[in-house]
Design a protein around this nucleic acid. Structure first.
Lengths: 229, 229, 229, 229
DNA sequence: CATGAATGAGGCTTCATTCAT
DNA sequence: TATGAATGAAGCCTCATTCAT
């Protein structure tokens, strides 16, 4: 049951190389070379390259999914599931404090970005079927926390937010370089999540514009913000 | 000066196939096959696959860049450059009403998503050097429109927003399918932009949290958190 | 350690085809076709075409180098190292009686000619670094055998001689045809080496002209020359 | 009749590039690029790449052939045709003092080396048929100058000598680098020909060994040398 | 007379995968 | 269980050449 050393070495190498160069751009040769295992080992242990890709994700997401379930259990036990801010905090905490801390969060976020943008339908399908449960659970709590939003509006806003996270974190290296160059400031993922939280919070709470949004409708204020400051 | 028929056919085919399958996953053979031109034509007209990729982007972004410049000129002529909502409206309008409407916006957004997530450093470098001017101009106006934000904070928020746009639009097909299935509602890009606007507006205007906000922090008050620490 | 059958077949085919058509003019397709192995086998076993070229040379020169070392050992044991004629005899014998007599000397000489004339810098560098030792050893003995020559003079004469050998042997087919046609005489390599020896011997021992010897110079006396000066 | 500028430019570029990289390794694209003429110009003016190669040789060898004929005329007029040293001097002078001195001798010697070693049968055939006359004439004079040699022996010795010249000059850059590194001496072609002459002279005059030349037959001296020292 | 466009053939290399050992 | 050898497919690119203009 314990994954052999070979399997682990392959997964470690693949994780880094996939994140760095993309799936198609990373050959099995390179992976096995870095892992210092036989070229045929990937097909032997995983069956195919696609299966390896999925295994890389599962190794990360399985514990994450379990961890997030735990935290949501606790949140519900405290009957705080409908507090939007606590819900977001819980999510952020689970992402940031993943137990498998020998793995790089940035690396995995890059992989997640690739999974969405690259033509890896097989991967998205797998992820959806395997982690649909936890996603649905989170979405349900989010609905309780934002009862003022129509379901479809919430759906889109959640994905806006998801886009912010994945895009920013998956391109972190590039963006960090720019930021460092322009603002002389090296940012960590923790700091980034600190910056992201209020943005996500207010984005989700923004009032809905019921009609078109042609210029002139800029009377929108954001009442709830006042309570925080 | 006028691009030959062959050149146009190649660009058209490449645009669609790249968006659909990614850059590495799309072979020149397939592109030239779809374009019904000779395999060597790509190398003849563009020099390499990388140059073709860049050309696909430039064909779209050059007119866009020009159009946005025009609109920003008008905006400044009206002395409305520092109105955040008008500024966003201008950007949205430029994106949505691109003259070359024979090109699919969704397709291009997918390409943009790929450009950021895939390992195409050459492409990002090219885009940055070629469209840095218009980006800087927009950023300068955005600074006037959001004077309360520190430069670095604005930088990151802009990219949060960018992530929302690119992620949502580049995965539009998938997301639209889900939304249609769950909420029985077929969304258009126009509607999506209507939904996005208030979110972007409030995201940019969200108050800055001055200290760290890791779980347990006190800035944002949520009483029960105390029990965790 | 033992070269697989596939490796040997590739080397055999490459040796002949390279000698016959040159390096650039011989495609891997043709080599693998003649060797009746898979096209990818060359890259699998050798890594690249260049590496294959070098391997062809090494397969021949490694045993040759070892053999010549042996013979020079024996020569020095007999304290005959400084006898020019014995030294040349030793070299000739080593070249002519190479153990791997399943390989064609003529073929290899052609390859050697190509190595020098074609633009294969990588090959020359490799040969120099790999066989510099045996070359230096021979040169050292040659210095003892021709103490009357300045080092640089000896260097050039050695290469004159080398040119004679390589040029003649590498073009042997053509020249032999002409000779056969004109002088009705089919020559073997052994006979050729018999003809070459006195020429090499006297070329090396030729007196040095101390000044320039542009037309009309007087250093080398041959009666009729006097009528010119 | 006067070759157009385009033709000259192509020949100039081809001459240098062929010498530097070989025939197969030099593409028409590169030639026309360097010559700054249209890619199709080569096929337009010369018909094919092979024809261009031949044209490069003819542009050099035609005047050389004419010049050598002249010099041999004068030599015969002086009834000095059978003087070996004067014959060699004449040849050397013709080679060294070619009228078309805007062309590099070294460059051309490299080309000649390539012509012999590379698989350019078409070229060798062309050269033989076009310059066979002057070669025969020289050979006839050489026979008069070395009456003691059997025809076949002379034939081979002439080619030994030719090998020395072509090999040394065609690989001049490489050899010069070595010589410069080892003996701190930068040699010119003129100096090289000074070194070559006595070697050629004595090589041609070396006594014939009538039988085998196994070790032990080293009683051979070279009587004429004695008269020099 | 000269050229830009286009082409079919073929170049070397790399890929993921399979299989006998 | 694990691997070295081998393979068919396909990758991108460059070639010399042709042809309509």
């Amino acid at each position: 049951m314990v994954p052999s050393d070979t399997v682990t070495r392959i997964l470690d190498a693949a994780e880094v190389l996939f994140a760095e160069h993309g799936f198609s751009e990373t050959s099995l040769r390179r992976i096995t070379g870095r892992a210092e295992v036989n070229l045929a080992a990937v097909n032997y242990h995983f069956g195919s390259k696609q299966a390896l890709i999925q295994a890389v994700f599962c190794r990360y997401l399985d514990p994450f999914s379990a961890d997030l379930h735990c935290r949501l259990d606790r949140l519900e036990a405290e009957e705080a599931g409908s507090d939007l801010e606590r819900l977001l905090d819980t999510l952020f905490a689970s992402v940031l404090e993943m137990p498998s801390n020998n793995h790089d969060l940035k690396t995995f976020m890059k992989l997640l970005g690739l999974a969405y943008s690259q033509a890896q339908r097989h991967l998205r399908d797998e992820l959806r079927s395997r982690y649909g449960t936890i996603f649905s659970r989170f979405l349900k709590l989010l609905r309780q926390a934002t009862p003022e939003l129509a379901d479809d509006e919430r759906f889109w806003r959640l994905h806006f937010m998801l886009g912010s996270v994945i895009f920013t974190l998956s391109g972190l290296n590039t963006l960090r370089d720019i930021a460092e160059h322009d603002y002389h400031q090296r940012i960590t993922i923790r700091e980034l999540s600190r910056r992201l939280k209020p943005v996500a919070l207010h984005a989700l709470r923004a009032p809905v514009t019921d009609a078109d949004c042609s210029p002139g409708s800029h009377v929108i204020s954001h009442p709830r913000t006042g309570t925080h400051s």
